[in-house]
């Protein structure tokens, strides 16, 4: 059986926001080390990998591997019934076909209980190779969100060029073109806003902006985002969750004919 408790329902709500535009239904794979999700979008262009480590919950208990097949639209409906600050407990039995969700107000004078019907999901699990990337850029997640939003006015594609001087995002479309360059910064007052670049060799990649806009739904989960890139391979876009795990997205590049 599974029993896992989070001090704030807001976290699960935010996680759901971060994946529900990409994926309609997926398995939450629970075991004694935590809860993991790996799911691709329907076009097999983007993949989300989510990890919530057991020690990020208090308490956490799961005796054996338990795949919970969840329709995210349905889960979203139930999570709308939780207050952001509610204590959230999820429970599932080994042979059950429902997920129990309990929302408890902080002073414990209101307890609401919901059951979500589970489903059997035959998901395709991809093996993601351990990759040494040529360029790893850590930057403000809010800045990344703004750049994706701004350049989506220009085009539905974005070109990312990384050199040791900085990272340049550019778009070219019918109205004209635009670009935003962030220089590697060592002297900003706020660490959250700094851009740092680890570079083995310069990279230049083209991506569909639509998917980046889905990924940036994870912005409330972390003040930082890390973009890991090598030429002609999928980009890894990672949001780390404090003391809990991560949300990672992989996006296949657009490649020249």
């Amino acid at each position: 059986m599974l029993e896992a408790r989070l001090p704030q329902a807001k976290l699960l709500k935010s996680l759901l926001e971060a994946i529900k535009e990409l994926v309609v239904e997926c398995n939450f794979d629970c075991n004694d080390s935590g809860i993991a999700v790996q799911a691709m979008d329907s076009s097999h262009v983007a993949l989300v990998a989510l990890l919530l480590r057991a020690d990020g919950f208090d308490p956490y208990r799961c005796d054996r591997n338990l795949p919970l097949g969840i329709n995210l639209t349905s889960l979203n409906k139930i999570l709308k019934c939780a207050g952001n600050e509610d204590i959230l407990t999820i429970k599932a039995s080994d042979d059950g076909d429902v997920l129990n969700l309990v929302f408890e107000s902080k002073d414990s004078d209101r307890i609401s209980e919901y059951e979500l019907k589970l489903m059997d999901i035959d998901s395709e699990h991809l093996g993601i190779p351990d990759t040494q990337y040529d360029a790893v850029v850590s930057m403000s997640s809010g800045e990344f969100q703004r750049i994706c939003r701004d350049l989506s006015q220009i085009s539905d594609s974005i070109v990312i060029d990384v050199t040791k001087e900085g990272i340049k995002f550019s778009a070219s479309g019918e109205v004209g073109n635009g670009s935003v360059t962030l220089k590697q910064s060592g002297s900003v007052d706020r660490e959250d806003e700094a851009t740092t670049i680890e570079l083995q060799q310069a990279v230049s990649l083209t991506f569909s902006l639509k998917y980046f806009q889905y990924f940036t739904k994870a912005t409330p989960l972390s003040s930082r985002v890390v973009l890991s890139m090598s030429n002609d391979v999928p980009i890894l876009v990672e949001y780390k969750l404090d003391n809990l795990g991560y949300v990672r997205y992989y996006l296949a590049p657009k490649i020249g004919d």
Binding site: H44, V45, H125, L126, G127, P129, A252, K254, G256
Partner: peptide, 14 residues
């Protein structure tokens, strides 16, 4: 011009 690739050409099936 560029063409959208898919993840299947980079990541193997488990």
């Amino acid at each position: 011009s560029t063409k959208q690739s898919t993840l299947g050409s980079f990541f193997g099936k488990n």
